[in-house]
Each structure stands twice: as structure tokens, then as C-alpha cells.
Design a protein around this nucleic acid. Structure first.
Lengths: 143, 143
DNA sequence: CTGCTTGCAAAGGCTTTGCAGAACA
DNA sequence: TGTTCTGCAAAGCCTTTGCAAGCAG
């Protein structure tokens, strides 16, 4: 299983800017991780990020990848998806959108914006506010 | 074979019937687990089921709880919820319904039926069919 | 009988933690 | 400098597995 290299959409300077805008000190490791993650819309696990970042040469440790991913989530630069109870998936697209999850293949694909429409929204429990809504359409391959 | 929204406690005989209807051999352990699980609508982890079943006296091993929960899910007697990536939550209500998840407290509450309405449904990827749709409304306590 | 099921303990995968050394402002 | 961050390895959790003994039909 090889990992194709994708040309980053953001320059190193742009990534550093983005981190600063979100109150994240741009250390070398964080910049490397953010460049790998934010280079395109993707759904990745911590393991994948680790592999991507250390593709050429070891740059970042496992602990730092987990630290940084958590940090980026808390700062709103990345979204966390709960799809597989065994591991967290990080989504570099922070715009509100939903997902198809292919149970057979494990593939995770964005639902095209505007094709899933909610007209009525439930009243929230007292004293709470909505942080986000997550819709997962579980699909399978036809027999 | 619809399940009432709030099913009453089931007798041992009723549980055995239910298991047989779903092609599950009703062993002592499975009956004990099913009685604990299906006695009411609830969201429980494997750990909780284990504790509930062995409340009075040890009856069932951890391995069997995991085995049985997986079996009940595959037979459609219980629904699996992916909410916390660290553990699976089992829902004894198999009717289609959605959830509020309180990020602060961990509380998981059903969305009242009919209060969340989807009018447009996205086209599925070619060669696939929808197995189910899961909506999780993430909420927090107001500051 | 014959094949499922169970239980124990050990292993497995993902994530977090403790703490010393390194990097940052 | 004082603080924050990093890396390593070990530990932690939830879950699965291997295999011998036990139960169901």
C-alpha cells in the first residue's frame, strides 16, 4: 500500500499564518503536520498523518502527532469524525458537511453540499446549545 | 415485528422467543444478556452490560458479552452507535431515531421522533444502497 | 455424538501519560 | 531565562483471539 504524494495547496508561510491566526505556536512539527493535513480535503487517521509527515525522513514522533491533532481540533482547524469506534478520523474540511460511510470497504466520502436537507430541527434539551450536527449515511455495495 | 417505544420488561420466555425468532440459539448467557439489554430502551457499553448481568452473581464472562453483543447487532436485535471512538455504545431501541450527545457530560439522549425531518436525501454512490442513516446532534451546556 | 458456545488469559490496536531534554519567546 | 513543546517508552483502555472444556440439539 503506497502513499501518493500530493502537492500541498498551501505554502509553508500560509500554513504558519493559519496556525498563528488560530493561536497555535507554529513549531516545526506542527507546521509539518498541518501541511500534510491541510494540503487537501481528506479523511485521515493519526497513523496516516504520522506516515505522511515522516514519508521522506522522520520528523515527528507519534506522541506529537496525537498532541497536535488534538490541538488542531480544539482550535477549529480540523474536524474529528466518530465513525469507526476503533480509531478517530480527522477531516481537513471544517465546513459543515456530511458523509457516506461504506461499511464494506471502509471508504468515507463527502455528501455533496445541498443534497441532504433538514427542514425541521429538534428542540434542544434545556440549558444546552448545539455545537454541531453529524450525519453519517451508512452504505453497502450491492450484492 | 415492531417494538413499542418503551417496551415493558420482558419475561424470560419472551426473551427466548425473541432470540429464536432472530435465529439466535438461546443459551443461558445470551438470555441473561438479552434480558438485561432489552428490558428497556437504553444506551449501554459492553462494560455496563457485563456489570448489569453479573450484578447478583457472576454469570457471564467478558468474552461472551462481546461475542453476544456482536451477534445481537448482526441479527438486528440491537443497534450499535459510534459516538465515542473509545468504545461502542449499544442501543436497545432498533427503531430509526437520532441522538443528542452532550459533549460535556457524555449524556446520550434520543431525539424525539418527528422533530428532525430530512426532506432531501442525497444520491448514493453508484452500486451501493443505504443501510441506515445516523444523525448525532452534538450539544454542550450553556456557559 | 458433533458442532456451537463459553471462559480464561494473553495479545492486539489505538491513544495517553510521565518525564527528561530540546525548542521557543 | 522561564515556559512550552517534543520524544521515547511504558502504561491504559477497549476489544479480539486461541484454545481447552462445556453445553445444545
Amino acid at each position: 500500500m503506497e502513499m501518493p504524494l500530493h502537492p500541498p495547496l498551501l505554502s509553508r508561510a500560509e500554513v504558519i499564518d493559519l496556525l498563528l491566526q488560530h493561536d497555535v505556536t507554529p513549531t516545526q512539527q506542527r507546521v509539518a503536520i498541518a501541511m500534510a493535513l491541510l494540503s487537501r480535503d481528506q479523511h485521515v487517521s493519526a497513523e496516516t498523518v504520522l506516515a505522511q509527515v515522516n514519508q521522506a525522513a522522520p520528523q515527528v514522533s507519534k506522541a506529537t502527532v496525537y498532541n497536535t491533532l488534538g490541538l488542531l481540533v480544539s482550535k477549529g482547524l480540523v474536524r474529528e469524525l466518530m465513525i469507526d469506534p476503533q480509531k478517530v478520523v480527522y477531516d481537513s474540511n471544517t465546513q459543515p458537511h456530511h458523509h457516506f460511510y461504506n461499511v464494506d470497504t471502509g471508504a468515507l466520502v463527502d455528501v455533496a453540499p445541498g443534497t441532504l436537507v433538514m427542514t425541521e430541527f429538534p428542540p434542544l434539551p434545556a440549558g444546552t446549545y448545539a455545537e454541531g450536527i453529524e450525519v453519517i449515511v451508512r452504505i453497502r455495495n450491492q450484492a
